[in-house]
Deep mutational scan, measured.
Amino acid sequence: EESVKIVRLVKNKEPLGATIRRDEHSGAVVVARIMRGGAADRSGLVHVGDELREVNGIAVLHKRPDEISQILAQSQGSITLKIIPATQE
Results as ranks from 00 to 15, higher is better:
Ile68Gln: 02
His62Ser: 12
Arg33Gln: 14
Gly17Arg: 14
Asn12Phe: 13
Arg42Tyr: 04
Ile83Cys: 05
Ile79Asp: 04
Ile34Gln: 03
Ile34Pro: 01
Ser69Tyr: 14
Ile83Glu: 05
His62Asn: 15
Arg33Thr: 13
Gly77Ala: 08
Val30Lys: 12
His25Cys: 11
Thr80Trp: 08
Arg53Pro: 01
Arg53Asp: 03
Arg64Thr: 15
Lys82Arg: 06
Leu61Thr: 15
Gly44Thr: 03
Val31Phe: 15
Val10Arg: 10
Gln88Gly: 13
Gln88Cys: 11
Ala59Thr: 13
Ile6Arg: 12
Ser43Cys: 08
Gly57Phe: 01
Ser75Val: 11
Arg64Asp: 14
Val48Leu: 06
Arg33Cys: 07
Glu67Tyr: 07
Leu81Pro: 04
Asp50Pro: 00
Arg8Gly: 03
Gln76Ile: 10
Val46Arg: 00
Ala32Gly: 09
Thr19Glu: 15
Asp23Thr: 06
Leu45Gln: 15
Ser43Arg: 03
Leu45His: 08
Ala32Arg: 09
Pro85Leu: 01
Val48Gln: 06
Ile20Val: 13
Asp41Gln: 08
Lys5His: 10
Ile34Asp: 02
Ser43Ile: 01
Leu52Phe: 05
Gly57Arg: 02
Glu67Leu: 05
Thr80Pro: 04
Leu72Gly: 03
Val60Arg: 01
Asp50Lys: 00
Glu24Phe: 07
Arg33Met: 07
Ile68Leu: 07
Asp50Tyr: 00
Glu24Asp: 09
Glu24His: 12
Ser78Val: 13
Asp23Gln: 08
Ala39Arg: 07
Met35Lys: 15
Thr87Asn: 15
Asp66Gln: 11
Leu16Asn: 01
Arg22Ala: 08
Ala40Met: 15
Leu81Trp: 02
Val48Cys: 07
Arg8Lys: 13
Thr19His: 10
Thr19Asp: 15
Val29Ala: 09
Pro85Cys: 06
Gln76Val: 12
Arg22Val: 14
Ile84Phe: 07
Ser26Lys: 08
Ile58Asn: 09
Val10Trp: 09
Val10Ala: 11
Asp23Met: 08
Ala18Thr: 06
Gly37Pro: 01
Gly38Asn: 02
Ser3Phe: 15
Ile20Trp: 11
Leu61Asp: 15
Ser69Lys: 12
Ala86His: 13
Ile68Pro: 02
Leu61Val: 12
Gln76Lys: 12
Val46Asp: 00
Ala39Met: 11
His47Glu: 06
Val31Lys: 00
Gly44Trp: 01
Leu16Ala: 05
Leu72Val: 13
Arg36Cys: 07
Asn56Trp: 00
Ala86Phe: 11
Ile71Cys: 07
Gly44Val: 00
Val55Thr: 01
Arg42Gly: 03
Glu89Arg: 11
Ile58Leu: 09
Gly49Val: 00
Asp66Met: 09
Leu9Lys: 05
Thr80Gly: 04
Ala39Asp: 03
Asp41Ala: 10
Glu54Thr: 04
Ala40Leu: 13
Lys11Met: 15
Asp41Cys: 07
Glu67Gly: 01
Gln88Tyr: 10
Gly57Glu: 06
His62Thr: 12
Ala86Asn: 12
Lys82Tyr: 00
Asp41Pro: 00
Arg64Asn: 15
Arg22Trp: 10
Ile6Val: 13
Gln88Pro: 12
Ser43Leu: 04
Lys13Ile: 07
Leu72Ile: 14
Arg53His: 08
Ala86Lys: 13
Lys13Gln: 12
Glu24Val: 11
Leu61Tyr: 15
Gly57Ser: 06
Ala28Gly: 09
Leu16Thr: 04
His47Pro: 01
Asp41Glu: 11
Gly17Cys: 06
Leu45Tyr: 05
Ala39Gln: 08
Glu89Asp: 13
Val4Ile: 13
Thr87Gln: 13
Asn56Arg: 00
Leu16Arg: 01
Ser3Thr: 09
Glu89Trp: 09
Arg21Ser: 11
Glu24Ala: 12
Ala40Lys: 01
Ile83Arg: 03
Gly49Thr: 00
Leu72Glu: 04
Ile79His: 04
Asp41Ser: 06
Ile84Thr: 07
Asn12Trp: 10
Arg33Tyr: 09
Thr87Ser: 13
Glu24Met: 11
Glu67Pro: 01
Val60His: 02
Gln70Arg: 13
Glu89Gly: 11
Val60Gly: 03
Ile6Phe: 10
Ile20Ser: 01
Lys63Cys: 06
Ile71Pro: 02
Gly38Lys: 04
Ala59Asp: 15
Thr19Trp: 11
Asp41Arg: 03
Ala32Asp: 15
His47Gln: 09
Glu54Asp: 03
Lys13Asp: 14
Ile20Asp: 00
Gly44Ala: 05
Lys82Met: 04
Ala59Gln: 13
Gly49Arg: 02
Arg22Met: 12
Arg64Gly: 13
His62Gln: 10
Lys13Cys: 09
Glu51Val: 07
Asp41Ile: 03
Arg42Phe: 04
Arg21Val: 14
Leu61Phe: 12
Val55Glu: 02
Thr80Ser: 10
Glu89Pro: 12
Val48Asn: 04
Glu67Gln: 11
Leu45Arg: 09
Glu67Ala: 07
Pro85Gln: 07
Asn56Ser: 02
Gln70Asn: 14
Ala28His: 08
Val55Cys: 03
Arg64Ala: 13
Ala28Phe: 02
Arg8Leu: 08
Met35Tyr: 08
Val60Lys: 02
Lys5Gln: 08
His47Ile: 00
Ser78Gly: 08
Pro85Val: 04
Ile71Arg: 05
Gln70His: 11
Leu45Ser: 10
Ala39Glu: 04
Lys82Leu: 01
Val29Cys: 12
Val60Asn: 03
Ala32Met: 05
Ile20Pro: 00
Leu9His: 05
Arg36Ile: 06
Val46Ala: 00
Gly27Met: 03
Val10Gln: 09
Lys11His: 14
Gly37Glu: 04
Asn56Lys: 02
Val46His: 01
Ala18Trp: 15
His47Asp: 06
His47Leu: 02
Leu52Cys: 01
Pro65Phe: 12
Ala40Arg: 00
Ile79Leu: 12
Glu89Gln: 11
Arg22Pro: 04
Arg42Cys: 06
Gln76His: 13
Val31Gln: 02
Leu61Cys: 13
Gln88Met: 12
Leu61His: 15
Thr80Gln: 08
Arg42Ser: 06
His25Gln: 13
Thr19Phe: 11
Pro65Ile: 15
Lys11Asn: 14
Val60Tyr: 00
His47Ala: 08
Glu89Val: 11
Leu81Glu: 03
Ala32Leu: 03
Ala40Tyr: 02
Lys82Pro: 02
Asp41Trp: 12
Ile79Pro: 03
His25Gly: 12
Asp50Gly: 01
Asn56Gln: 06
Val29Leu: 14
Arg21Ile: 14
Arg22Tyr: 13
Glu89Ala: 12
Val55Leu: 06
Ile79Met: 11
Met35Phe: 14
Val29Trp: 15
Thr80Leu: 08
Gln88Asp: 12
Ser78Thr: 14
Gly57Leu: 00
Ser75Leu: 12
Ala39Ser: 07
Val48Arg: 05
Pro85Asn: 06
Ile34Ala: 02
Met35Leu: 14
Val55Asp: 01
Gln76Asn: 13
Arg21Trp: 07
Ile68Met: 03
Glu51Gly: 02
